[in-house]
Write a protein that binds this DNA or RNA. Sequence first.
DNA 1: TAGATTGTTAATCGATTAACAATC
DNA 2: TAGATTGTTAATCGATTAACAATC
Lengths: 232, 232
Amino acid sequence: MSPENTPRLREPRRRRDVLPETTVARLPGYHSVLSAMAASGLATVSSEALAQASGVSSAMLRKDLSYLGSYGTRGVGYDVEYLIYQIARALGLAQDWPVVIVGAGNLGHALAKYGGFASRGFSVVGLVDADPDTVGERVGDLEVQPMAELEALIERTRPAIAVIATPAEAAQAVADRLVAAGVRNILSFAAAPLSVPADVEVRTVDLATELQILAFHEQRRTGRADMTEASA
Amino acid sequence: MSPENTPRLREPRRRRDVLPETTVARLPGYHSVLSAMAASGLATVSSEALAQASGVSSAMLRKDLSYLGSYGTRGVGYDVEYLIYQIARALGLAQDWPVVIVGAGNLGHALAKYGGFASRGFSVVGLVDADPDTVGERVGDLEVQPMAELEALIERTRPAIAVIATPAEAAQAVADRLVAAGVRNILSFAAAPLSVPADVEVRTVDLATELQILAFHEQRRTGRADMTEASA
DNA sequence: TAGATTGTTAATCGATTAACAATC
DNA sequence: TAGATTGTTAATCGATTAACAATC
């Protein structure tokens, strides 16, 4: 980035292409709703209708789309196909991204076979596990590789993303090896804060925490005596 | 705060026990870090040390904890055991929450067997699937029930939370049935916006979207020609 | 008392919502 | 032209960070 005309002093909003993280997180949803609309033959859609179908407000939708550019027509709405194309381009949906999964337990196993990835442009190209009993097992058309092969596997397949599906205790060590091997994007299912260099993107999905958050709401709703209830 | 002197007109911050959603989402992390500390014999911890280990700033940690009450000692720090107890109480970790899973495909299967739930107070008490070939299959010590049994299962087990692990197309219909049967907390893995009454809590985890967000960053990092790069 | 560290208030930052001028 | 709807600006809201007085 920054070809020859380097920014003068401090650039006011870095480049032009910085989408807020919250916007990026919503774009896949718009894309999938639009795809369904296109499949049902819809040619044009208003921000109101698309927002409704996506479960957001129309103001937020228009704001989100405005970061991509001006692809709507006032008084008319958005061309469905064209908007699909623009969102796909922004997200990098055009290409196929190779993914390596570390940990072939229940979750790693399920993720490797998960159809939802392939359909959205991700190919699981490798699956490794520390347990010798699991190594060699066939999962879909992959064979579980030994942990020792991790670096060689990354070297060979050059994954854009690595998924950590190991126990929490192993997660940091795995992350360190992934980073050292050149991986810059990690999706972790381990309930442990990962420490990585600033240029590495990490997203953590902790399934038990998700349930915990819901349990908290349930507890509040049913008014557990020790928590709420103290009013006269 | 305010035991008998109930707030006059509009209460300024609803009750007293409203934790910001962001705070609730971080409490499980603090709890697990503290548990590890307790296991290693640590009796007391400062906000600085706990924050560091949890991957947040000490200011944010203190703010989060202050919503629960004043459980630290100035000049000293927090008593590890006591803080564990208070967080557990706030989150509802004391009790065991029954969970029903709808959809016994790759993901539902893995979730039913996932050890991370049991260890955090959740018991999977039922697993249903629409596919007659899957019904009757044994998963852990559960047997996959037919979809028609959903209401009866809920009636019998009274789950605090239901997990939707069906294809996106089926998700809304499943949610409707869950809500009608009395479920008030839903964790959905289906990439579809669910429409539910206001008193129903829904959390959506879309695995493909998580990868998509990372792919976006990878694309930006490697500077795909069509996205950025247009400057003179 | 001197040093450490909490709990809280105020400042900052970012994201969402509302409103409307531009324009099809 | 009259009606519809975008793209954007300004207002609001909420969450994070900084700072520090209270207090162990």
